[in-house]
Amino acid sequence: MTPLARKRLTRIALNTAGSLVFLFAIFPVYWMVATSFKANDQIFTTSFIPFPTHFTFEHLFGVLTEGVAGNSIWVYMRNSAVVAVGTVLVGSLFALLAATAVARFRFKGRTSFLITLLIVQMIPTEALLIPLFLNVRRLGLYDQLLGLIVIQVGLTLPFGIWMLRTFVAAVPKTLEEAAWIDGASRFTTFWKVLFPLVAPGLVATSIFSFITAWNDLIFALVLMKDTAGYTMPVALQFFFGQRGTDWGAIMATSTLMTLPVIAFFLLVQRRMVSGLVAGAVKG
């Protein structure tokens, strides 16, 4: 075999492998979306129907108007969004303050704080479910979205600080010093110099917190009682009813729950990775 032919063969092999990986990853997602647009006779069948030839919006409209557990899917979407956005707003402010402290100052207790941050990330959050449930009840936040927000802020903060601190550290200190010498106050320096430069990192951290809060099942399951307060992951459980499973409606709901996350992911994919493995790769 000539070197050229061999090279070509390698290329073909690599591209085939790449395509297979792509198909393996995308097919289940595609199947979810496809099922949600198929008419029931094409869903409940033992044959393979790759495309919804009997295309229908019936399931999508069904979940948006009729919904499940007595409410339209809009209600659950709104609840999920309230929790996720609330978590992001409070969480990123706290994370930014703490990240600035550890990235910009040398102080007593700094190393202990960072080690604590690392260790609390090892604690399985599911293990804290019982005490957090009782505490939320004691504080009178049971069955309130605010209770969920408080919990999610706690669960996402250590990672948020950890990720954001590398972004703050990456901003050259000389810029702040220049502003300082020009007579800017500490707050102005922070707000006008550091903040705009850290903003991309803040967006990445926020999206991470948003997704964590949006995806949560276990805390929403035990902290919300009234069906009108359910979030999307909890509401989805109610489709698996006694009357047999309405897969079209389930897949339509899953699609609605998944699309915003996919959009966010594609937006920040690069920073996600650099944030998650921050510190491991010296660059």
Binding site: V21, F22, L23, A25, I26, P28, V29, I211, W214, N215, L217, M232, P233, L236, S254, M257, T258, V261, I262, F264, F265, L266, Q269
Partner: peptide, 11 residues
């Protein structure tokens, strides 16, 4: 493609 799989919420 693989980002789409990664982004799907656990539920």
């Amino acid at each position: 493609g693989i980002m789409c799989a990664w982004a799907v919420p656990p539920v």
